[in-house]
Design a protein around this nucleic acid. Structure first.
Length: 271
DNA sequence: CCATATACCTGGCAGC
DNA sequence: TGCTGCCAGGTATATG
């Protein structure tokens, strides 16, 4: 489900409400991808200082330590004023004096991990290798171009790896490459300077637009207020195999790259 | 170091 | 209907 836009939209939908709240109780459900790394009881009394995002991780800064939240493939958060009995797929409740932050995640690829600081080994194991943030002004074209020159893999897979730029998942990789006119199978190292510049701009534009639209709700994504996103309605290629390209009417094609489906227009996107 | 495959888990859907 | 197989927004880890 959640790529950078969905995680950012989720962050904005509850950050103001939970900041300065005190944790009263933590309830963990079925196991998630990783253990919490602390006893639930030890979090009681901690205060939420800020809610940040790094790549597809949400960081809840506490007055002592922080919580790293990941939504995996099927996760969503909900922030509600009062507690409702948890359903079978609700695997964490962070009960605060401002309301309850609940993680709903049927596939349980998501995670909630406590770390003593962002610089700690626990946090760095998850965040340490992440590439640059695309939307915070630090996404430098020259640095990006230099990084791509070293990558021999297909550009789609380089984007998904998140080592050079974070937040671009399966939907937005296909969409960005369409906007840039680049075939997803092209080796990253072979892209010309102008084409890398187009891709750089396309990534920023696609992700920004998706945030504006509340993310993509392909199936079940909702923000912490329960609202769906609308970007899927304007997807150019994702999920549109066989349908006519919105630019040239050529049927959109799909292929597998590293076990993930990629969508592209064979006419608009050049190798 | 680099690139690719695997594992984790549940639900929905197409096809028989 | 009910079964089977496949697919799904991610990513650390293992393997070549």
């Amino acid at each position: 489900m959640p790529e950078l836009p969905e995680v950012e939209v989720t962050r904005r939908s509850f950050a103001d409400k939970i900041v300065s709240a005190t944790i009263m109780e933590v309830r963990m459900g079925k196991p998630l991808r990783w253990p919490l790394g602390a006893s639930a009881h030890s979090l009681v009394g901690r205060q939420v200082v800020a809610v940040r995002r790094r790549g597809k991780y949400l960081l809840l800064d506490l007055d002592e330590g922080l919580l790293l939240l990941h939504l995996g493939m099927s996760g969503s958060l909900n922030f509600a004023p009062s507690q409702v009995p948890p359903g079978p797929h609700d695997h964490m409740d962070l009960v605060t004096n401002h309301g309850v932050l609940r993680l709903h995640d049927p596939r349980r690829f998501g995670a909630v991990v406590w770390a003593p600081s962002e610089a700690s080994p626990q946090a760095q194991k998850l965040l340490g290798h992440l590439g640059v943030e695309p939307l915070d002004g630090q996404f430098d074209l020259a640095v990006f171009a230099k990084a791509l020159k070293k990558r021999q893999a297909a550009i789609k897979q380089v984007l998904l790896a998140g080592h050079d730029v974070v937040g671009v998942g399966n939907i937005y990789a296909s969409e960005s490459l369409f906007m840039a006119g680049i075939r997803p199978t092209t080796r990253a190292s072979r892209l010309s300077g102008p084409r890398v510049a187009k891709l750089h701009a396309a990534i920023v534009q696609v992700l920004s637009r998706a945030v504006q639209q509340g993310g993509s709700s392909l199936k079940d994504f909702v923000n912490a207020e329960g609202r769906t996103g609308y970007f899927q309605l304007e997807a150019a290629v994702y999920g549109r195999a066989g349908a006519p390209c919105r630019v040239c009417a050529t049927p959109i094609r799909s292929l597998l790259q590293g076990q993930r489906t990629t969508f592209y227009c064979p006419t608009c996107q050049k190798p």
